[in-house]
Write a protein that binds this DNA or RNA. Structure first.
Length: 190
DNA sequence: TATGAGATCAACT
DNA sequence: GTTGATCTCATAC
């Protein structure tokens, strides 16, 4: 097994469309619990679907900060969703984590989620945060140290792209990236 | 398999 | 007052 490489902040200091596919297959642990990233979506400040579209607010302030930090927001008033901020400071782009293949800390994830089926633990942005225990208080934390632990994938993987999920604006842009054939996606790719 | 409602809150009109 | 980067459960086909 090759020694995994811990992702430095510089990894995120690139175009969001370069970072997003490179995250597929990477491993994400949060307080020692997590798995392999199998699905993400890219958002950019010129993108009408992005929270940063239209300028900084209290909620999206982290997106306008430096890359390599976590932007966490509440979705539909109920769920937490986590993003990785990308590109040079100020461009307000981010990658939304949508699904993981669970590998580590399965008992903790099953307990938090209240389900036993591995495929239901992290197959969606809200589920993923619940399984890992990520909440709003973790917004703004750096991604290159605890409680986060991100490692680059060891080899190239087949990546598929498609339109993003659950949005109404710019819904046709193919800015969703996934691991081809994964059983752990929030939804299959067409 | 597919569609619909409810939960619950911050941003925005 | 309305909308949304969601999820779960219920009911219908």
């Amino acid at each position: 097994m090759p020694t995994p490489t811990l992702l430095p902040k510089a990894f995120f200091n690139r175009d969001v469309h370069a970072v997003a596919p490179d995250l597929i297959g990477a491993s994400l642990l949060f307080n020692g619990v997590g798995g392999l990233i199998v699905e993400v979506e890219a958002y950019h400040h010129t993108d009408p679907a992005a929270h940063s579209y239209g300028g900084p607010t209290v909620r999206n302030a982290v997106m306008f900060g430096p890359p390599g930090y976590a932007y966490v927001y509440r979705s539909y008033g109920v769920h937490w969703c986590v993003n990785f901020v990308c590109e040079p400071k100020g461009s307000a782009s981010a990658v939304l984590l949508r699904a993981l293949q669970p590998t580590t800390g399965l008992p903790a994830m099953r307990r938090r989620r209240g389900v036993a089926d591995d495929r239901l633990l992290c197959s969606g942005p809200g589920k993923l945060c619940e399984a890992l225990g990520v909440t709003g208080k973790h917004g703004g934390l750096p991604l290159d140290r605890a409680p986060f632990a991100l490692h680059a994938r060891a080899e190239d993987l087949p990546i598929v792209v498609g339109p993003r999920i659950g949005i109404t604006k710019a819904a046709d842009l193919p800015w969703r990236y996934g691991l081809a054939g994964s059983r752990y996606l929030s939804k299959p790719f067409r």
